[in-house]
Design a protein around this nucleic acid. Structure first.
Length: 438
RNA sequence: CGGAGUGUGGCUCAGUCUGGUAGAGCACCGCGUUCGGGACGCGGGGGUCGCAGGUUCGAAUCCUGCCACUCCGACCA
């Protein structure tokens, strides 16, 4: 992608509305534009990152056995009356009336609709277990939206719903998602810690929040330091392995403010392992049994021939929020430092003298070879001042910067900089390309 | 929803107290000089001063109402 033909509206100064660093950097890097309180347009650079995160979240769901579908953003009020949540949800739910005076709502979550879909088609225990998910925009009319995409009113969420014949198998489904989330956040370059959580309005007795540790997190969290460094569990785990992954982590203390018990923390955790920090919630999983299936008559027939309400769980990941969370966890004075897996581009090729044919030819060769190797390349072919090019490259946080200029080219070298470390090396173009494509 | 605050070119802000021809920096356009870590000179375009009423010879400025946005608190992917 040539920068001269791209749409990358960089700002030198952060708009004064933005209070926290991820919001400021997303605005400055031309990733989003605010359209209303808590409602954002996703500009090309932001959309690229959003899509990469979405893809990773999707792939890990599929690997864990979940099946993707797509439900609409608008739902009928009557469906929510069946579960009793139409009245219970309150003013956070955006309610809409169509031309026929039918009551609709912009979905804040999808338990009712997925239960409706399930009950319409699934009648037998033989179809279970089943886990359905979608990645769709949600709307919650927050009292106070803030922090950019971290607490927007409109936000992109992955929500999965599991269906099982009984509680024992539902708990296995829960643990499968628990492990899938550990894998997901590890791939995103995040250290996310599962913490016991309040089940809130969704109800049920088994729930964990996944918290990214960051200084600007919204809530205070307490956990065993060992949890932060645990490796991702990997895929295709047996039930025994799932139990092991789950037990190993839940044996260690981890709780958010509202669940925190200081005396238990001290009893359970050696002093040197006690970590108190701030965190950002990026995922939340629940087992809630038959709360919705009973209310909405989502029954399946068991081997004994009797109908019984299906056991359900729901599993959410705040996809759009993750951009903010990642930036909060990974930035410096120069701007964003994207983890390789979610970076909008793999490498930016910086042409220091676009008017110089030899330099441009070398750049174009580099771009062609990198793209042939499957890399996403941003080619800065503009006439902008060189200093501004470096500042821009740092700001948007692309992992590698390949700089080609007339002086270096005369000596047969280019410069390769690693954004995360600031480390620079001079080497031949071929050597740089080999390094970038290996 | 309670409390506090802000709306002036794309962005950051001055001007409002004390009414009198709308400003600066950055960004943008043109020409030139430059060119290896956010250049410089000259010229230029762009603003119903959030909206609606009111007071006044005259309103960005004073008054009233409304709207939007931000911050602090109680709720949440």
């Amino acid at each position: 992608m040539r920068l001269s033909r791209y749409f990358l509206p960089i700002l030198k100064e952060a708009p004064s509305d933005a209070q926290i660093v991820s919001h400021q950097l997303m605005l400055r890097a031309g990733m989003i534009k605010q359209e209303a309180a808590g409602i954002y347009a996703w500009l090309p650079l932001g959309l690229r990152v959003l899509r990469k995160i979405e893809t990773i979240v999707r792939e890990e769901q599929v690997k864990a056995g979940a099946v993707e579908l797509l439900m609409p953003t608008l739902q009928l009020a009557d469906l929510w009356r069946e579960s009793g949540r139409y009245d219970a949800y309150g003013p956070e739910m955006l309610r809409i009336t169509d031309r026929h005076e039918r009551e609709l709502l912009y979905g804040p979550t999808n338990e009712e609709m997925i239960t409706d879909i399930f009950r319409g088609f699934v009648k037998s225990y033989k179809s279970l277990p089943l886990n359905l998910f979608h990645i769709q925009w949600k709307f919650r009319d927050e009292r106070r939206p803030r922090f950019g995409v971290m607490r927007g009113r409109e936000f992109l969420m992955k929500d999965a719903y599991s269906f099982d014949i009984d509680e024992a198998s539902a708990r296995i489904a829960y643990k499968r998602m628990f492990a899938a989330y550990l894998n997901t956040f590890a791939r995103l370059g995040l250290k996310a810690v599962p913490m016991r959580a309040d089940t809130g309005p969704i109800g049920g007795d088994l729930s964990h929040e996944f918290i990214v540790l960051a200084e600007t997190g919204e809530s205070e969290v307490f956990c065993d330091r060992k949890l932060v460094e645990m490796a991702a569990p990997g895929h295709n785990l047996s039930v025994e392995q799932l139990e092991g992954v789950f037990n190993e982590r839940t044996a260690l203390y981890a709780a958010t403010e509202e669940m925190h018990d200081a005396s238990q923390f001290e009893a359970q955790t050696a002093e040197g392992d006690r970590l108190s920090a701030r965190g950002i919630e990026v995922g939340h999983i629940f087992y809630f049994g038959t709360k919705y299936s009973a209310a909405m008559k989502a029954n399946v027939q068991g081997p004994d021939g009797k109908d019984a309400p299906v056991h359900m769980g729901s599993y959410g990941v705040g996809v759009s929020r993750l951009l903010g969370a990642i930036i909060e966890a990974s930035h410096d004075a120069g701007g964003i430092i994207w983890p390789d897996a979610v970076a909008p581009f793999d490498v930016v090729v910086i042409n220091l003298r676009a008017s110089d044919e030899a330099v441009s030819a070398a750049c174009e060769e580099a771009v062609a070879k990198l793209e042939a190797a499957g890399k996403d390349v941003l080619y800065d072919d503009t006439d902008e001042r060189p200093g501004g090019k470096f500042a821009t490259a740092d700001l948007i946080g692309v992992p590698w910067q390949l700089t080609v200029g007339p002086k270096g080219l005369a000596d047969g070298v280019v410069e390769l900089k690693r954004r995360a470390t600031g480390e620079k090396q001079s080497l031949s173009l071929d050597a740089a390309l080999e390094l970038l494509t290996k």
